[in-house]
């Protein structure tokens, strides 16, 4: 079943330069998709469109069969509950003046989700591998990896069906990165995951399908294993060629 359908979507901040050019993409329920591309390829813009923060210039996006319309308040309330996001920079994504509890509870409060919020926040903290009782503390008392766990807790607390991760592990050190990827892999069993990254290695480990974006166009898409084993587009080949060199350097140094 298709959860999200991106249908011939184009977007440009100025008329003559296209950030996204005729992008089509399906996210099936329960799928994990890696969206790969260099900085400036339009990954983050596509994410903003998928979150309903910006409207496409042309084309359409549907969520669960309904058009994603930022102006439709009633639809957006149910949509916000079902689609959540984790950002790259764990230092900018948590309000420094709020307690962890109130940060994680914000979607529950704003989307008026019924139930015992304190318990839901505790459950979310536990689900991301933190203690239930850290809720009274402030973001600056946590490390980058812990902050990213808190950001993930905020994203999963309303029980979304789609989790968008925008370079969510790129700012973390190697060992922390692996732990957060493990956490996301566990979560992807119960929700769809769109994992935006320029790190093809992490995508290979985490995602069943891969979409390669270059200069606002989808240049290659398919099963991660087959795309990586037999890249057809020159850009994908170049992306892949840069990976072994890096791992060789890491081994020799």
């Amino acid at each position: 079943m298709t959860l999200v359908r991106v249908d011939h979507v184009s977007f440009g901040y100025t008329a003559n330069r296209r950030i996204l050019d005729d992008v089509s993409l399906d996210i099936a329920a329960g799928d994990t998709i890696g969206l790969v591309g260099e900085s400036g390829s339009g990954k983050t813009t596509l994410l903003r469109l998928l979150l309903g923060l910006t409207r496409p210039d042309s084309g359409s996006i549907t969520f669960d069969g309904k058009p994603l319309d930022p102006g439709n308040g009633a639809f957006m309330r149910t949509f916000r509950r079902q689609a959540q996001v984790v950002f790259q920079d764990p230092y900018s994504s948590l309000d420094p003046r709020q307690t962890i509890r109130s940060i994680i509870a914000e979607p529950l409060r704003s989307l008026k989700i019924p139930g015992d919020h304190a318990k839901q926040v505790g459950d979310a903290l536990e689900a991301v591998g933190l203690e239930r009782d850290v809720g009274t503390r402030f973001p600056h008392q946590f490390s980058g990896g812990q902050r990213q766990r808190i950001a993930i807790a905020r994203a999963i607390v309303p029980g979304p069906r789609l989790l968008l991760a925008d370079e969510a592990v790129s700012a973390l050190d190697l060992t922390t990165r692996i732990r957060i990827v493990d956490l996301l892999a566990g979560l992807s069993k119960s929700m769809s995951l769109l994992f935006v990254s320029h790190d093809i290695g992490v995508v290979a480990a985490l995602c069943r399908r891969i979409v390669i974006l270059e200069k606002g166009r989808v240049v290659e898409t398919g099963d991660t294993a087959s795309v990586l084993a037999n890249p057809k587009h020159p850009y994908t080949q170049r992306l892949l060629a840069s990976v072994p060199r890096l791992s060789l350097n890491e081994v020799s140094s």
Partner: peptide, 14 residues
């Protein structure tokens, strides 16, 4: 421009 503002928007805050 902080991400926590975007996060607040995707959390449904007006």
């Amino acid at each position: 421009v902080m991400d926590y503002i975007t996060a607040a928007r995707t959390s449904g805050s007006s």
